[in-house]
């Protein structure tokens, strides 16, 4: 494979990974919850697309809104019933609870759908745009484009709408937010729901390119974590930059070190970044506010 092809692959992967990390980053930045169950939401999004495809022949790209809606509802319910007790709790408590959720959801998926590896075989799978020796698979290109669109929409929502502003305000100062009449609990339910919906969208996109199993989630959680650390916490641009960077690291890491090491590469990068630049590459957009509000 040529270097140009690898750069293309890295971009295709990176854009998708940005979406994988986006919801995780949002929840971490706004609620200070490191959601280890994030990957299971991706898995559920992938299964949504899979069942829509195999039962009714719905194209996985068209399943995205359905996956997002289902996951939004699940996320909001989980927030109100479980996560609400660990918002701004010590990190260990959030890790324990969300890890428990991850095990629970994975096992329910195993019971319901068995450990069989599944995949979505669309008619355009394996086909793509060929430019000389270069190839860009349709499904990966579509996944990249949609990932970027959804990322841009989230950015617009957070920056330009009243509700998005209220969500950010909640992260900066809870007392100030309540003083202007923002219902904090509702913002958290919304944030966690959106985080889950973004994971659902990522899962539906991933279903077009990767194998689907109940255990597929955890490797995405680790990637999301590494991307947040890399790009900086809680900002859309951080997730985008971190995701793209990560695409390159993974693609070129596999080329230089060898296939089968991608998880090892993820960990290596994570450790290196944590040692050298604990605040991430773009700094920490939300965490200053989070600490201030949490410490008051």
């Amino acid at each position: 494979m040529t270097t140009v092809q690898q750069i293309i692959n890295a971009l295709l992967l990176g854009g998708l990974l940005a979406l994988v990390a986006l919801g995780f980053s949002l929840v971490w930045g706004i609620m200070n919850v490191i959601n280890l169950a994030h990957g299971t939401f991706i898995m559920l999004g992938a299964y949504t697309a899979y069942w829509m495809f195999s039962l009714w022949g719905v194209d996985p790209f068209l399943s995205i809104p359905v996956a997002m809606l289902l996951l939004f509802v699940l996320g909001a319910i989980l927030q109100v019933s479980v996560i609400n007790f660990i918002v701004r709790a010590p990190v260990l408590a959030t890790l324990l609870v969300t890890f428990g959720l991850e095990i629970l959801i994975t096992n329910i998926a195993l019971k319901l759908w068995t450990a069989d590896v599944r995949s979505v075989q669309t008619h355009y799978a394996g086909r793509g745009i060929a430019l000389g020796s270069l190839s860009i698979p349709y499904n990966k290109l579509g996944a990249l484009v949609l990932a970027l669109i959804i990322t841009a929409l989230l950015w617009l929502f957070l920056e330009r709408t009243k509700l998005g502003r209220a969500i950010r305000a909640t992260a900066y100062d809870q007392v100030g937010a309540r003083a202007v009449g923002i219902n904090i609990g509702r913002m958290y339910a919304l944030t966690f729901g959106i985080g889950a919906a973004l994971a659902g969208a990522a899962g539906a996109l991933i279903s077009t390119t990767s194998a689907i199993t109940p255990m597929m989630g955890s490797s995405y959680t680790i990637r999301a974590f590494a991307i947040c650390v890399l790009g900086g916490l809680g900002s859309v641009t951080g997730a985008l930059v971190g995701g793209l960077l990560f695409g390159f690291i993974e693609v070129f890491g596999v080329v230089w070190i060898g296939p089968g090491y991608s998880d090892a590469i993820v960990f290596l990068v994570l450790v290196l970044v944590l040692i050298m630049r604990p605040q991430g590459i773009l700094g920490r957009a939300f965490s200053a506010g989070v600490q201030e509000a949490g410490g008051a």
Partner: peptide, 24 residues
């Protein structure tokens, strides 16, 4: 409306955004 002790503004947001949030 209560203006809390210590101001409790949203430090990483612009002054305009802070003011607009007052109309939430």
């Amino acid at each position: 409306v209560h203006v809390p002790q210590g101001r409790r503004l949203f430090p990483g947001m612009t002054v305009e955004e802070n003011l607009l949030l007052g109309a939430y």
